[in-house]
Design a protein around this nucleic acid. Structure first.
Length: 277
DNA sequence: ATGGTTGTGCGACAA
């Protein structure tokens, strides 16, 4: 059977109930990783998620900023989350899925505007965060498969931005960030699910600024949201796409959901989660 | 275009 995984920077979950309903109506993902939920845990809309069929949930939020959640139709075993850069912010959640697959939902700092870590502490934080993730991942066991999904806030390929030349100095596409992201990818030999199916030369974005008069017409996008899988899962990838239409759903997030399908054993899909070690 | 928009929570920030 196919396990459909989605990641979406929802830019606040509370005003986005209708877009969330539409995502479920259009795609019905089995597992949904959310970033920028912008809600403290005691205000998370559990009722909405439950109503949409997500009986298994991990949420980790703070008031106003950041915040991650994993909504699932299949059982989740919570795994320890990391506090990268020790800021006490909410940018990572991890879970074990049936079949011993590990899922990591990550929200990488955006990094501010100035692409100089000496002049811009936010950019320094982003680079330190990416470096820490890479070093931590190297120590992780890949086991039956790792999935890294989330808003990684880096567009790695020239075709992941509307103009490679114009964005070389713009935070999200600078060579230093692309190199840092590549170290994360190389740490476990991840396969980029979208680029597994879509040629690297094909323009592909998952984010369009709110500031454009007509985001679709100007199409100045960037591919900031990613689903990566390790080798045991790469051979099981059956589909991947960006749900671009969601950028128009009212009220829109500035990010569109990214989805990937994995063909997994039927008995794994139905298996009860393994006991926590 | 030192712009432009959105969310949070009610004034700046962060994106």
């Amino acid at each position: 059977m196919r396990l459909l995984l989605a990641t979406w920077n929802i830019n606040s979950i509370r005003p986005r109930a209708e877009p969330l309903r539409r995502l479920i109506a259009y795609e019905r993902p089995d597992i949904l990783c959310l970033q920028e939920t912008k809600v403290a845990d005691d205000h998370f809309p559990h009722g909405l998620a439950q109503e949409l069929g997500y009986g298994h949930r991990l949420v980790r939020g703070e008031p106003g900023y950041n915040g991650v959640a994993i909504l699932s139709r299949v059982p989740l075993i919570p795994l320890p989350h990391r506090d990268f850069c020790r800021k006490g912010d909410c940018r990572h959640l991890a879970a074990r899925l049936p079949g011993g697959i590990e899922l990591h939902n990550l929200y990488v700092p955006a990094g501010g505007h100035v692409a100089d870590p000496r002049a811009n502490p936010k950019f320094a934080h982003k680079l330190a965060f990416l470096d820490e993730v890479a070093r931590w991942l190297k120590r992780q066991r890949a086991g039956n498969g790792l999935i890294l999904a989330g808003d990684l806030n880096v567009a790695p390929l020239p075709a992941d931005v509307w103009s490679h030349e114009k964005l070389l100095g713009v935070v999200s596409h600078t060579p230093i960030e692309v190199e840092a992201l590549e170290r994360i990818r190389a740490a476990k030999g991840f396969t980029d699910a979208l680029r597994h199916f879509i040629a690297p030369e094909t323009k592909l974005y998952s984010w369009w600024s709110y500031r454009a008069r007509d985001w679709r017409a100007s199409d100045r996008g960037r591919r900031l949201d990613h689903i990566w899988v390790t080798a045991p899962l790469a051979s099981r990838l059956s589909s991947a796409h960006v749900l671009k239409d969601a950028r128009d759903w009212s009220p829109p997030s500035d990010h569109a959901p990214v989805l990937a399908g994995l063909e997994i054993e039927h008995d794994i899909a139905l298996a009860r989660p393994e006991p926590r070690r």
